[in-house]
Nucleic acid binder design. Sequence first.
DNA 1: ATCGTCGGCTAAACCGGTTTACCCGGGCAA
DNA 2: TTGCCCGGGTAAACCGGTTTAGCCGACGAT
Lengths: 359, 359
Amino acid sequence: MTLVRESRLEQRTIRPRIADVAREAGVSKTAVSFAFNSPDRLSPETASRIRVVAEQLGYTPHPVARMLTQRQTLTIGVLTPQALSVVFSNPFFGAFTEGVATVAEESGYALHFISPLHGSLARAMSRATVDGVVAIGLSDDHPEVEEIRRAGVPIVLVDSTAMPDHGSIEVDDVGGARAAAEHVIGLGHRDILIIGVEPALPSRTVDPGGVTGRRLRGYREAFAAIDIDIPDQRVVVGPASIAGGIAVLNGVWEDGLRPTAVLAMSDAMAIGAMRALRDMRLTVPGDVSVVGFDDIDLAQHVDPPLTTVHQPIRRKGEEAVRLLLTVIAGRDVARPEHRRLATRLIVRGSTGPVRPSRG
Amino acid sequence: MTLVRESRLEQRTIRPRIADVAREAGVSKTAVSFAFNSPDRLSPETASRIRVVAEQLGYTPHPVARMLTQRQTLTIGVLTPQALSVVFSNPFFGAFTEGVATVAEESGYALHFISPLHGSLARAMSRATVDGVVAIGLSDDHPEVEEIRRAGVPIVLVDSTAMPDHGSIEVDDVGGARAAAEHVIGLGHRDILIIGVEPALPSRTVDPGGVTGRRLRGYREAFAAIDIDIPDQRVVVGPASIAGGIAVLNGVWEDGLRPTAVLAMSDAMAIGAMRALRDMRLTVPGDVSVVGFDDIDLAQHVDPPLTTVHQPIRRKGEEAVRLLLTVIAGRDVARPEHRRLATRLIVRGSTGPVRPSRG
DNA sequence: ATCGTCGGCTAAACCGGTTTACCCGGGCAA
DNA sequence: TTGCCCGGGTAAACCGGTTTAGCCGACGAT
């Protein structure tokens, strides 16, 4: 019953295999397997004897071997086109993951994060041992999207370009953005700055079907209604984090732009922008109004509380997993479901009327 | 070359196996394997022909099967005693994960989260297909800790009770807490409230070797130096989130306590406490001073900016993975490393002298 | 002409489980 | 007594790859 193997330098305990338990208990591998998975096929005495031996030996079925035979991993993947080190710096992602985790956990699924491996999402995808994937922010024009779809695992898309043959969850980005823009327009702002979330891959243009594209459309629609065209130079993008917002706003100011209102596509960036403005001794909303997007928990706790477009972040995660689970279960394969959740503007303290002197 | 299988209702493409590619290309399975893993063992023509066939068929080696033979998963686990849906609501965890992800990604490892499965951490652990685990906040007195260790996977502990035979990363909790307490003592506060992070399992007492225990010790040491004993009723715990901080503070106020300073063991809770105070029309630091712990990014952006104990959160994640990778690589098995990183108090705007009227 | 070697490829064993098909002996009904 | 069923167990196939050992023919050296 000695299960230790000596190698050159180290000495690591070898985990016992099912055959070790079988030998020790004087039964077949089958019996051991039965003892764990369908004890009713064994006499109570045999079953318990096997379990005792297994316990003594510290035997646990090898999870990978199980996965192989069962053809399921009880794991769902969360796929992000950006590096995890960047997505986790956005509180939005934390909240989204909370939602994903809630449903995954109650259904007995573990979470596995899939992010570009040495630059390749497809490679990361093919390594991943998951039963299905929730992809967030995956743009249709991502160069590897076809490869990823060919992997053949069920996919649900969140905040991504909709693809007809995959389920998807999104929110009313256009409506939310329009409401935000209409709000600042109503406050008299005409000279604005739009801060967007940069695409996952540099040197790519904004995908009009993606989230950034849709929100941009919403902003533009509102301004178009009062015959104002927002020039491209008033639209800048950066990483979706507080630091990203700070960097973008500072860059814009250095370029000499002096908008009276900032429409950010992410609360994290909006908060960064407010921070940068304060560091320049400008007041919010006195000198500059700021509107965010997302309504992360934090939004109401910053100074001033952030006016923003609310979207049900956690619920997006929850619904995405629920949808994915039905796809995994094999139902609903014929016509994938596409859900769109509502957004709504929440006015707090970061927006105010434009200054008379400048208006 | 038809690879579609009809089942009752659905019709899902079967992923091709290595044998399919072999047959189609007129070679052995071995040759196909070589074409992918050691092409130099094949003639260039054969290798490329095989790859062409594989490409046509959309063949990708089955990741689970690979794991089984290679005996490695290229995945590291992040183990949390709490449900993911709760840990992700603490920005601290996001930052920590950022650090973990940074090093994991650059080393080609994916991330897998391990949290209690139907209440059992050990069960979740035995399901997890990982090469090693970074455990965060795992207390020595956790009922399943022994079972988890017996799983035989390399483990590095972060913010956990130190165990001699596992590597660990921690910070100077005692020193940080002491500095925080000395700071408010210097401002004249004598009547304080300590807000701690509740243990993962309800109905457990505070593990003196755990993070909460160590920080508590630091606070108490500082007060002991001026001969003040902090009664247990001045120490309350709650979930480490903004909501948790709000709930705890409200509860305390309802109980009639009126401390002039609050020492929180987590920034999220400190921020929640400030929020609750503000909702009661109390000012910070005018009426009550608040000190946090962690120095999450957010701490400097709330109103007022939070005085807190800084700890290198991301670095903890990074170092933990680095350490884990050396253990996985098999080096350093003899004497596991224990690293303790420094903390330091950062005074911002949430603390001030005690009010003369109450001092 | 013979032998050794080497490039190119394959058959079979293996990773560690689960599942299918079947065997064996005892009890019960006919 | 025969036949059948059934409880309790096993051998072998299987999941989908990788790896080891070895085969085969060509080519160069002796």
